[in-house]
Design a protein around this nucleic acid. Structure first.
Lengths: 147, 147
DNA sequence: AGTTACAGTTTACATTTGTAATCGGTCGGT
DNA sequence: ACCGACCGATTACAAATGTAAACTGTAACT
């Protein structure tokens, strides 16, 4: 395994990636046009973001005449998983379930997605531990860590 | 409503908050001792983080003799929700469900939590739309945006 | 009363991120 | 053959973040 370093994509860069992920491949012209509509970013700003993503190894480039064609080097689902997991991992293990519950309530999802989540959880239920303990303190936070 | 600005807590600051959330209230001594164990941060580093959190309005201080007692000004669950929601919101609406599925698979949760999530989803199922469309492109990404 | 030890504040500095102007090369048109 | 439009690269700069030393004041112990 070579590039196991899991590139970090910043918020602004994320916007660029979404365009490329969605279009599978594009040139900077298209990216700039689309993004300049959504945000009011100057073309120069978007070029910078593209440049950084290429340097970071998130986008690949293929010379096409005078310009480049950009393609994602890291899969969207992969980036999404990593971002969410990183966020969750830095939170108290005991409270993750509740946090996810709130997120589920507020996230609009298709029937199919909801059903799929139910299935995943149903499969998870049997092996789920009776309790997951707080891991906020070095030792284990016995007693002082309720609800 | 005064401070509706939703303070942003950085990764390193998050560690400090977790200590305070768990202990409900503490002094810097305790925070420093606990954190110095988990990470190898110098006391000065932790002091800086505490100071920034106070300035940001995430921690409250109460003079107690020569030192301060710190208490959380923002609730943990609230911070967790905000962090996760912000992360999710910047992702393609169409793919959020799948990403959450992956996260659910990898997150250890208690039986009670899993069951709770199932309930939340079951309640959500009837009103869930048949499809949630990709919102990565300005227009709506018809056609060019499959799974 | 003097000194120590530690709490909180100020200052420091490199890196990352957001935001953007400018430069340099080239493709296409006249 | 030349000029302009445009692409990608270089440079810029402030704010946030990670990491930490230095400074200041004062409570506690001798």
């Amino acid at each position: 395994m070579a590039t196991a370093v899991a590139v970090t994509i910043s918020d602004a860069e994320w916007r660029v990636m979404r365009i490329v992920w969605t279009l599978k491949q594009t040139d900077s012209r298209t990216i700039i046009n689309l993004l300049a509509q959504q945000h009011d970013w100057k073309p120069a700003t978007i070029k910078t973001l593209i440049g950084r993503l290429v340097k970071k190894g998130a986008l690949d480039t293929t010379k096409k005449g005078r310009q480049f064609i950009y393609t994602p080097l890291i899969p969207e689902q992969n980036a999404m998983d990593t971002a969410l997991t990183n966020e969750l991992d830095q939170m108290c293990a005991m409270h993750r379930g509740t946090a996810i519950a709130h997120v589920l309530e507020q996230t609009e999802m298709s029937k199919a997605d909801v059903q799929n989540l139910i299935d995943v959880l149903a499969k998870k239920l049997p092996t789920a531990p009776d309790a997951v303990h707080c891991d906020c303190l070095p030792d284990g936070c016995e007693g002082s860590c309720e609800s």
